[in-house]
């Protein structure tokens, strides 16, 4: 049975893939393999709290989960500094990911779905893209990066469908331009808050559905401490829901960012 475990995972490989950005492969138990949109809660050496990092892939053959870590501070630097053979304590898998089965069904039935990623937000989308590809289907992506040195994932995304890369510009500009010829049925998004807000607006204006992965500072990562909430719903019925357990993937219009 697939379940969440707290394990010492061995780093299988580590490689710098862009400026301040490292890709690591970690051995995780097969029954605890993450799915697209799920995350690992990693005890960075020397840090008190764990760090949530999305899975950016999983290799069935080797049992390796892949993560891409951008150096944002002490904890992320400690994780990206780990090398092959090192061990690190982590919880896997955590959270509600993208509903890949229904997404794949939709694509198979001819619906158009786009991936939209900003910066390190491309990481979980790589996993979504590769699982679409594993079903012998294609998915188109729009990704944006601050500069050339920060670009990640373009080759992998290119193997799964067409890719539009914006460097220095806004992903959402590229998306609105593309919408002049074809509007998608839904969008899977991950990235900085301003980008997600812009996507919410585009989706609301055109009746596009979809999902996005959101970030919040975390404690336990499992849903018990209630520190990681985001605001969902509207009017009097709004709620504080846990990003670690009820998310990190929410309906695109669900979260008030």
């Amino acid at each position: 049975m697939r379940r969440t475990v707290d394990v010492d995972a061995t780093i299988l490989s580590s490689r710098v893939i862009a400026r301040g950005t490292t890709e690591l492969a970690l051995a995780v138990p097969r029954n605890a393999a993450p799915r697209p949109g799920q995350f690992l809660h990693i005890r960075a050496p020397g840090e008190f709290l764990r760090r949530p990092i999305s899975a950016s892939g999983y290799d069935e053959e080797t049992g390796a989960a892949r993560i891409i870590v951008r150096d944002a501070g002490r904890g992320s630097r400690a994780i990206s500094g780990l090398g092959a053979g090192d061990r690190v304590r982590l919880l896997t898998p955590l959270g509600r990911g993208f509903p890949m089965e229904s997404i794949i069904r939709d694509i198979a039935s001819g619906k158009k779905i786009w991936l939209a990623g900003g910066g390190i937000g491309a990481a979980p989308l790589l996993f979504a893209a590769s699982s679409v590809r594993a079903a012998d289907l294609a998915i188109d992506s729009f990704v944006g990066f601050r500069d050339e040195e920060s670009v990640i994932g373009v080759r992998e995304l290119g193997e799964c469908g067409s890719v539009s890369v914006s460097v220095g510009g806004l992903v959402t500009d590229a998306m609105t331009r593309a919408m002049e010829s074809a509007v998608p049925d839904s969008i899977l998004a991950c990235g900085p808050v301003p980008m997600l807000r812009a996507i919410q607006k585009i989706c609301a204006g055109r009746g596009i559905r979809g999902f996005m992965s959101v970030e919040e500072r975390m404690g336990c990562g499992v849903g018990a401490c209630l520190v990681c909430v985001c605001r969902t719903g509207t009017g009097d019925g709004w709620e504080h829901r846990r990003v670690c357990r009820d998310g990190p993937v929410f309906g695109i219009s669900e979260v008030a960012l």
Binding site: L49, E216, R217, M218, G219, C225, L226, V227, C228, V229, C230, R231, W238, E239, H240
Partner: peptide, 8 residues
């Protein structure tokens, strides 16, 4: 509903 985030 508790306080707004960030809470930690």
């Amino acid at each position: 509903r508790g306080n707004p985030p960030g809470r930690i």
